[in-house]
Write a protein that binds this DNA or RNA. Sequence first.
DNA 1: AACTGCGGTTACCGCTAGTAACAAATACGT
DNA 2: ACGTATTTGTTACTAGCGGTAACCGCAGTT
Lengths: 237, 237
Amino acid sequence: METRQRAAQRDAAQNRRQELLEAADRVVLRDGPSASMNAIAAEAGITKPILYRHFGDKSGLYRALAERHTDALLAALRAALDAPSDRRERLASTIDTYLARIEARPQVYRFLMHPAESEQGFDSGRHTAPLLRRLGEELGKFVQDRLELGPGSEQRARVWGHGIVGMMHAAGDWWLGERPCPREQLVAHLVDLLWGTLATAEDRPRAGRTDRAEAGPVESGAESGQNEQSGTELPRA
Amino acid sequence: METRQRAAQRDAAQNRRQELLEAADRVVLRDGPSASMNAIAAEAGITKPILYRHFGDKSGLYRALAERHTDALLAALRAALDAPSDRRERLASTIDTYLARIEARPQVYRFLMHPAESEQGFDSGRHTAPLLRRLGEELGKFVQDRLELGPGSEQRARVWGHGIVGMMHAAGDWWLGERPCPREQLVAHLVDLLWGTLATAEDRPRAGRTDRAEAGPVESGAESGQNEQSGTELPRA
DNA sequence: AACTGCGGTTACCGCTAGTAACAAATACGT
DNA sequence: ACGTATTTGTTACTAGCGGTAACCGCAGTT
């Protein structure tokens, strides 16, 4: 069997794999998530079939690549989440860590949000990037482990995990595109939101309002009255 | 000029456009967001170039399609958000409306979350589906209009808008995939989260914990100690 | 009858992911 | 030392995508 040799080959293959991943990383960083297999192969100094021998599939390569980055991000987040400070402080610092990360390397971030898009089987569900799923699950476990939530705590913790992660992600994504404020301020607003300020905020005084008729929050089109459920579609609800 | 004829032709073109959109809708509903232009053309009983004459571009068609669905969803959400009930109730009902919608037509939902993915220019920012952006903006305006948030209220309202929408989306997406609980429960958990229960929940009593050493929330791999920022990557921060 | 504009088609381009088939080199058993 | 099998790499290909150019035929106008 020559196990020693076998092992050596395995090692060599692993090293090769790492090199290839690094090359792919460089290309994705340069070209965005639409980097082609040809381009990646060229960057690695080889040709396509080798890539396919190592990763089987484009989504295979992308998965391997995403796993690396996700691991790194997750480690940073765990550190922030596990700091010995006050709960609110930890929340803020975790969100800030995430935002700092996506701010520092938007290309990587963008790549992590997309990499699926291939599988053409319409398996409704599983749309979100694996990164978000994983972050949500992790945070859910953390909450479940740290907080006393009463009966049904597991479900609640998981919902919260995914919800908080989604909030972080969407706000971060929007912020990254428009840069409407410095990062600390975004963090502060999000923490406020999660801290229940939404519940305690005052109603804004408005003019007499028996029925909605004047300047509402409406922006464009479709002011066609009360189409609430069965309006334009939903033929089989 | 024959403006009457011109007008008739315009009308015909508009009708045609609607037919094409409906055909495209059927195909997307059947094949998911990866429906090809060929398939859509075939479903409409014509060939590709006509599609291109009408919509110019695949993303053009997809944008038109998404706009219809987004308008419908937005109308439903506005109705829920504008009901004459208690604030917390309105929040719950809005979230529930959204969830009911994506539950009823997951294919449409899935399509709405994806349709970009083409543009190969790496314009970091603008990753999220336009639907989410629009929902976030709308909700932000609503909050800004209805709540008294003190100085800097506009920014805060926008952050909250995008944050809440992101929370709803991520939790809904996860829920749609795993179905871990009935919808009402998911809604209740999310409302609780936004209502500040995170701030007031008790710490869970834990065994002596001078430093983290035992069962943490960690799940797999990468327990390599304190790599918080400069650990695995981020070479140019 | 000739002309013009529009709906529609076929046939193509350049690109992609993915693969089959072949070439060289290296380590192996005998 | 020699054949042999395995790994590493290549070239050259398929099938299908988005997108387009060039052409066909039928309405109405003059």
